[in-house]
């Protein structure tokens, strides 16, 4: 990992839902950096074929810097990360994490915060809630889950938040009517969504249909890179060639070959890994580059984007 990675020790592991495990990570020396609500860290996992790095939201109180908590849902189609965390990691193990970074911070000037969580998407809100409480902010949590799989922390949250807690267990047939949730809201209400793409899209569409201004809707846009066709990346400066497999990202393939590219979000948001393209067309999948930059074909975000053909030539 990069120079400023932080070694941590797994201090506790707890099943917080049938498919979700919580890991408490302690600093090996000193304390951990303070962080803002909505922050995430990358966790490096030594997988069988290659190192895997996944970003996980911190789900503890930002005031608690003795340890961090993350919660990991076992993905059925895991690319290795969640399966590794669930089956290979034990209490006492050492892991490497990055310092926290944040692309999902609260809008501090909001009049009201509507937090909408789907399944393991509750995690960033576990760091929001203590800070919003400290500031005496007005907020509601709407928590959609399936009790046979997810629903972590719901009892604790129900007791803690009282009226501000709204749970929807689809396994018990309780649905969330988004248009009811989003209707009759006062100005200055900001909505935050963390969950599956379908939930994010559902909230955005409903809000748009109800006339909500876009800038009141916040969501965690980044997700694990989607697979694609394999391709070859040629590197002009080092004269090397890297094969990118269907189930790995270009960034991961470069790292596997020992080529470090600066990066933070690994999800096409932060812009740190932008790399110049010398030749070849790009399938852009990021939220960072402008439409003009994408059309120019001169750069790529290797964390999520891939070759549109069978090769790319990069200025690396």
């Amino acid at each position: 990992m990069s120079i400023d990675s932080i070694p941590v020790r797994v201090a506790a592991i707890e099943a917080v839902a049938p498919m979700i495990r919580e890991f408490r990570l302690e600093a090996i020396d000193g304390s951990l950096p303070a962080f803002s609500p909505g922050s995430h860290v990358q966790v490096a996992m030594p997988g069988e074929q290659r190192e895997i790095r996944n970003a996980y939201s911190l789900c503890s109180d930002p005031r608690e810097t003795g340890s961090y908590r993350i919660a990991v849902r076992l993905q059925e189609d895991s690319r290795g990360g969640s399966a590794f965390m669930h089956s290979q990691v034990s209490v006492g193990d050492r892991l490497q994490i990055t310092p926290p970074a944040n692309f999902f911070a609260p809008a501090w000037h909001a009049r009201k915060h509507l937090l909408i969580a789907g399944g393991v998407g509750i995690t960033p809100f576990m760091s929001y809630i203590p800070e919003l409480e400290r500031q005496g902010a007005d907020f509601e949590l709407h928590y959609l889950y399936r009790s046979s799989q997810t629903g972590a922390y719901r009892d604790e949250l129900m007791h803690r938040l009282g009226q501000a807690f709204n749970g929807y267990d689809s396994d018990a047939g309780v649905r969330c009517d988004l248009s009811v949730l989003l209707s009759n809201r006062e100005p200055g209400s900001h909505v935050y969504i963390c969950g599956p793409e379908s939930l994010i899209e559902g909230v955005r569409e409903t809000a748009r249909a109800l006339g909500w201004p876009e800038s009141l809707i916040h969501y965690e846009a980044f997700a694990a890179p989607e697979p694609g066709e394999p391709f070859k990346a040629k590197l002009v400066r080092s004269g090397r060639a890297v094969e990118v497999a269907a189930d790995e990202s270009l960034l991961e393939a470069l790292e596997r070959e020992g080529i470090e590219v600066p990066n933070l979000c690994r999800g096409g948001v932060c812009g740190q890994c932008v790399t110049s393209v010398v030749e070849g067309s790009v399938e852009h999948r990021d939220d960072f580059l402008s439409a003009d930059e994408k059309a120019s074909g001169t750069c790529i975000m290797p964390c999520v984007s891939r070759a549109a053909g069978n090769h790319l030539i990069l200025d690396l």
């Binding site: 400023d4 950096p33 962080f35 310092p99 970074a101 933070l264 932060c270 812009g271 740190q272 960072f288």
Partner: peptide, 11 residues
């Protein structure tokens, strides 16, 4: 602006 909004903690 793009660069500044991406500055991480500690860097």
């Amino acid at each position: 602006l793009k660069y500044l909004t991406a500055i991480p903690v500690g860097r």
